[in-house]
Simulated assay, not measured.
Amino acid sequence: MAFVWPLTRILGLIAVAPPLGNSSVPARIKIAFGVVIALIVAPSIPAIPDADALSLTGILILTQQFIIGLGIGFIMRLAFAAIELAGTMVGMTMGLGFASFFDPQTRGNTSALSQFLVLIATVLFFSLNIHHAMLIALMNSFKTIPITTTLQSGFDFHRLSIWGEQIFISGLKLSIPLIAALLLTNVALGILTRAAPQLNVFGIGFTITISVGFLILGMILPYLALPIEHLFQQAIDAMQTMNKVPQHVIPKLTQPFQ
């Protein structure tokens, strides 16, 4: 149990935290990665309760560890959800709402622009060592939220639900430049339609909005690194707050894009 219970918490994080949480990643890779992390963490875990694995207490502990891992990983999943929301809002404003396909992560339709921004965020996720900070927060959670037989896990799920508002706040912040530019484009098209009623605005409207959208996206793309980095830093800070991890434990993120 000194190995199985920590492994359960680690697998809970891997099940939902990007990028390993993606359903396209084979289950064998997820389990193997979790086993390796558990072998590293297990020797340093504080004393665990003496409970039979097949008893009701053992099953409750197992369930508790899995839920804690899900909660920690869900924080980072919310950060990626904010980026997906930004891409969806921009895609709908550009007229690319029809350019959608099946997303294995959410098991639903998602826009192509959302997946493009998620791919950029995934590259930043590894280049800024966010995956290291996330794993360190998970490892330290075994000290701040020890494995016990009590129902009080020590994880603040209420604060986790409140942090979910970052999906809408960060998504709107990331998409504001494009939405503002496209709004001005639509206003200009409206004025042009009033000035020349014989002009077929439906024939040229989509072409203009899509062209302007990609043009503005290409202009602001180099500047998206800092907002996305800030969003990831907020997610790590949320993990620290919800796990009550000391601030000096998590390493500072590198900033190669400044």
Rank of each mutant, 00 (worst) to 15 (best):
L124K: 14
F155T: 04
I176K: 10
M134N: 04
I176E: 10
L172V: 08
T150I: 08
L174T: 10
Q198V: 09
P146L: 11
L160R: 06
L189I: 12
L135I: 15
K173F: 13
S141N: 05
G171W: 04
V187R: 01
A181L: 05
T150C: 02
I162C: 09
L192M: 15
M134R: 04
A121T: 06
L199N: 05
A196F: 11
A133W: 02
F157M: 07
P146E: 08
T149R: 06
R159C: 09
W163D: 09
T144Q: 02
S170G: 09
A180K: 03
I167W: 07
I191D: 01
L182F: 02
I167A: 00
S161E: 05
L128S: 07
Q198Y: 01
A181N: 00
Q166Y: 09
K143S: 12
I176N: 04
P146Q: 14
D156G: 05
L183N: 00
L135F: 15
S141Q: 01
F142K: 10
I167F: 07
T149S: 15
L178H: 00
I167M: 12
I130V: 14
I136G: 12
M134F: 07
M134H: 08
T193M: 06
R194P: 00
S153Y: 07
I167Q: 13
E165N: 10
L124P: 03
A196L: 09
R194L: 13
L183K: 09
S153L: 02
V201P: 05
I145L: 11
H132D: 10
L135E: 11
F202Q: 09
T148E: 06
F168H: 03
A137P: 00
V123T: 11
H158Y: 05
L151M: 13
M139N: 08
F202E: 05
Q152T: 06
G190P: 04
I147G: 07
K143R: 14
Q198P: 04
I176C: 04
L172P: 00
Q198M: 06
F202K: 05
W163Y: 08
T149C: 00
T149A: 14
P146M: 10
A195F: 01
T122F: 03
A121L: 09
M134V: 15
T185R: 03
F142W: 06
P197S: 06
H132M: 10
A121D: 12
L172Q: 07
L135Q: 10
N200H: 07
F168C: 02
A133Y: 10
S175L: 04
A121K: 06
G164Y: 05
A188K: 00
N186M: 09
W163S: 14
L124I: 14
F155S: 09
L172Y: 08
M134A: 15
L124F: 15
I204N: 08
L199C: 12
F155K: 03
A195M: 15
L199E: 04
T150W: 04
L184P: 04
T149M: 06
F126T: 08
G154Y: 02
M134Y: 10
F202I: 07
A188M: 01
N200P: 02
L184Y: 06
T122W: 12
L184H: 02
L182N: 08
F142Y: 14
S127M: 14
A195Q: 13
T148P: 00
T150A: 13
L138I: 06
I204H: 08
P177M: 03
I145P: 01
K173T: 12
N140Q: 14
